[in-house]
Write a protein that binds this DNA or RNA. Structure first.
Lengths: 214, 214
DNA sequence: CCGGTATTAGAGAGGGCTCTCTAATACGAG
DNA sequence: CTCGTATTAGAGAGCCCTCTCTAATACCGG
């Protein structure tokens, strides 16, 4: 009962991902996406309310894809420590498998114009974040680490540290070396060991392995 | 023997830093910098060959300021391990003291149009990098870690890990919590402990490296 | 006081980007 | 076959940005 679409949403977002990976968020202009996808600008504006909306969609689709896989990995392990190690590895593995989307994610929502997003897009982003941080919170609880600083360290070990390895290698057009997963898992494990063990243990400063040399 | 300048280079770059911190590299337009500094666009083009040159200058001035202080900290310690811990702390301390410049540095040279830089600017960037990586290389050598992967781990501990803590907190307009230095030093120390000790010693951990599992 | 010069000052051409608007088009239901 | 509709198609207004160009300006040595 209507003309069939030649350019669906995903196709256009794919083009946007390629542009973002190559030229950064600033390179994702309506004109550039249209050209990259071979579509007229009218088709773009037919699907997205404007540039903000397109930026929001491309960011959210990408980050949600990553978060889905990340949550799946976390859920696939019973032992908390093992789940953590697998999650850290997974960040690298996913990045290796999706280099363009990763380059996009190395920016932040702010670079994709979060300020100008609709309420709907904002809360979609919020939901995704809460989901992952919820998982990390409960993982921290399982590990007996309940205060803010401990959750922060867990996040550092399972998200930020892997991401910084990925960032260093992918920035300026490089690729991930073969040993990246191993380095990340190893380092994440070391960081997990700085967490206070369960049982209300005092902070790992003076007792643990970290500060013996002071 | 000439009209005295009302707007010197540093003043204009200061304005560019503020804009980059608030709006990202894309917000650093010649028009915006002129307005922010209260200068006419003519003055801008009088000092910078064009937008690329201004972006290069603002990036290089900022990164060199950071690198200077970083190198100074590394040189201030005799013990390699202590130097490493101090360096990691310093990344956080410097970021706390210079939040706007830090927000700028959380982007990369690529975001500041490195492709379009003059040869002079490129080699200035190259020189700065070589300087720091040279220091890190010799630090690694002192610690008895000579292969690429070991240097990579050292970089991770002394640069990337502190930066990722800074990034998480400064992104989206936050500030660094009081305990950030402590967390970073603690985690950096843990990572330093994963380095192979001099003499080919295996690391004192869970009995082997993660890589063995492959 | 005067000429030389570095700088300020800002108008305006040219280009790209966002977004709007109108017309053409292709399909499916009846 | 015809009508209704979702979509394609792209021209063009308006805006901002980069960069150029010309004129005015303020200091300084002599």
């Amino acid at each position: 009962m209507a003309r069939p679409p030649r350019f669906d949403t995903d196709q256009l977002l794919d083009a946007a991902v390629r542009l973002a990976a190559s030229f950064g968020p600033a390179g994702v202009t309506m004109a550039a996406v249209a050209k990259e996808a071979g579509a007229p600008s009218g088709s773009l504006y037919h699907r997205f309310a404007g540039r903000s909306a397109l930026l929001a969609e491309v960011w959210l689709r990408t980050v949600e894809r990553f978060q889905d896989s990340y949550a799946r990995v976390l859920a696939a392990h019973d032992d908390a420590r093992e789940a953590g190690r697998a999650a850290a590895r997974h960040v690298v593995a996913w990045s290796r498998a999706h280099p363009e989307e990763t380059r996009l994610l190395l920016y932040g929502p702010g670079d994709f114009g979060r300020e100008g997003w609709s309420q709907e897009h904002r809360s979609r982003a919020e939901r995704g974040n809460r989901r992952i941080f919820g998982e990390l919170d409960s993982l921290a609880a399982t590990l007996g680490a309940r205060d803010t600083e401990a959750v922060e360290r867990l996040t550092l070990a399972l998200v930020d540290l892997p991401l910084s390895v990925v960032r260093r290698h992918l920035r300026e057009g490089g690729t991930l070396p073969a040993h990246a997963e191993a380095v990340v898992e190893d380092c994440a494990t070391a960081l997990l060991d700085t967490l206070p063990r369960s049982g209300g243990h005092v902070r790992p400063g003076s007792g643990g392995r970290a500060r013996n040399r002071d």
